[in-house]
Every structure is written in structure tokens, then in C-alpha cells.
Design a protein around this nucleic acid. Sequence first.
DNA 1: ATAAATAACAGTAATAGTTACTATGTAGGA
DNA 2: TCCTACATAGTAACTATTACTGTTATTTAT
Lengths: 131, 131
Amino acid sequence: MRYSHQRERIFRAVSERCDHPTANMVYEQLKVEMPRLSLGTVYRNLNQLADAGRLKKIPLADGSCRFDKTKESHSHIVCDECGAVSDVHLPSFESFEQAIESETGYELRTYDVVLRGVCKDCRACMDQQAG
Amino acid sequence: MRYSHQRERIFRAVSERCDHPTANMVYEQLKVEMPRLSLGTVYRNLNQLADAGRLKKIPLADGSCRFDKTKESHSHIVCDECGAVSDVHLPSFESFEQAIESETGYELRTYDVVLRGVCKDCRACMDQQAG
DNA sequence: ATAAATAACAGTAATAGTTACTATGTAGGA
DNA sequence: TCCTACATAGTAACTATTACTGTTATTTAT
């Protein structure tokens, strides 16, 4: 993978945020300073960076993808109301791996566990509306 | 929800198969006997049936959805090679629910856990190719 | 049984998120 | 410095799904 100015800016953008941005969020942020940046370039580079292990790709239930700086292994929880994505630590499936494999006949590769719920802010908002 | 011939056939189609079909798979199956059936009708009814709790919707990481007859709670494992979806029993997150909620500040609603791996058939196939 | 109201339909167009294509530009080695 | 392959910008295409529009069919009330 050859160096490119765009790729490094895209990598830095994701690394410096905590909100697990979408490709489009990265694009919107960077195009202010890089007006000629194209959305396709952002998608291509995010996927390349994920393939290279420098970022983690988080495919969500609604078909969109979020990107995360890679740190120690963790799962994510998505707010059904506002779409926010937060980190969450779950007990690993590693201890069940054997049982899962023998039950299903599958060789387990990954488990991107994505929980869903309502975040603190949206709960406050909903409570207020309910009176 | 008013009765419709189409809806009942769509419900039966999903109930009678074990492969967690997509909307399009249901459409392909039924249009042989119902040539005027439209794909939009299949989507609309699958979602209505899921909302009504008569079927379960399984959104996958690639953005597509599968539909499942509702039975006792279980999770799913998807084959990365052929896309097959199988049932798998996992220990429930219920025991961690409290910990998750206090860690994240979220109110947990659902956890559609989708594991990924390689099914028995595809493993055999890959082994053969490798020699 | 008949008519009115409305949910559901078929067919088509539109949408969102993403990937592919094409011609131009640039990194990095010879 | 020049060459080659990878990267880019800009655009078109693609997939899964939803929305729109005029017609059909189920239900409710007469």
C-alpha cells in the first residue's frame, strides 16, 4: 500500500474521533479542508485501512457501516433513536467457541456483536416528551 | 391488519422453510404460482408480519435481511462463503444486562447476535481446492 | 345483498449506501 | 529524470429496500 495524503488524513480523522463515524461523516469533515476529496476515495481507503488492520469496520443492522480506531477487542451498542454508536465490553465468546462449532458445523471466524438500545440522552428526551 | 391472500402465502412460505429466506427468495418461490405478485408486496408484508411478531427479521452485516419463523429465542450464524444462515443457541445476555446498562448508560432493547464463519459444505469445498 | 370506506395490491419510480469505471495525477524505484 | 503501477476525482452503476400512484379487494354498515 503506497502512501497517499488522502489516506493519511482519512486515517487520522477516524483515529481522532470517538463517535465511530460513517464514510460520509469522514467525507463531510475532510472536504472542508480538502475540497477536491471524493466520497469514493473515502470509502476505498476506509476499506483498505480496515483490511490492513489499521481500522475496524463495524457493519450495522441498517446496512450502513461505521469505522473505529482499533484498540483492544470490544463490541458496540447502537442507539435505536439517534444512531449513536458506543463501545461496550462483553464477555468473549471464546469459551463457547467449541460448543458453537460442534452445534452448527461452522468454523467460527468473527463475531461482531452489535447490541441495540436507547442512549442516555434519548431516554431523557423521551421521558420529557412523555411528561 | 386486514386479511389478504398474499400475506398468508408469504407467511406460510417463510414458516415452511428452514433457510431463513430473503424477501427476494420468498418472491421467487411464490411468483411461480402467483405470477402477478409484486416484490414490494413481499417486502411490505414481511415487515408487517415481523412488526406483528409472527415472523422475526434478521438484519445481516451486508445490509440484506433474512426472515425467520419465530420460535424460542436463538441467534444466527452466517457463512461468509455462501451466505447460508443457520440457527445457533447462545447463552443469553440477560445476566450481563445490568452490567452493560451501567457501563454504557444505554437501556438495552435487543441483541440480534449474528456470528460469522464458514459452513461445513464450504469448508469441504475449500479443503478440496487447497489439495 | 349492496354500497361505501379503506387497507392492500401491482407496477413503477425513487432512495440510500456503496462499489465500479475511466481518464488523469502522483509516489517511489531504476 | 523517467517509468510504471497505484491512487485520485468525478461520474455512473449497482443492490436492497421503500415510496408513490392508480386499481383491486376486504370489511363494515346499511
